[in-house]
Amino acid sequence: MIAESPTVSDRLAQARHELTAREVAVALALAGALGFALLVMQEPLAHDALHNFRHSAGITCH
């Protein structure tokens, strides 16, 4: 049931209805892993390879 003008809590309720816990977990894990690799990973090989990207994007945890 969608109201004429939905609210944020409508959206929350609807997402809870449509998504399974596993889907949410997978999405969070994917986004988290990607964010971690791009932003803060200090492992020398990854750090070195992403060096130009991090400087170009102004990511300073590096």
Binding site: L38, P44, L45, H47, D48, A49, L50, H51, N52, F53, R54, S56, A57
Partner: peptide, 19 residues
């Protein structure tokens, strides 16, 4: 210190992929 582990072409390509 990690620099030099990878050739420049790889670093550039990975950075583009990162973008």
């Amino acid at each position: 210190a990690g620099e030099g582990l990878l050739p420049g072409a790889v670093t550039s390509a990975v950075s583009v992929g990162g973008g």
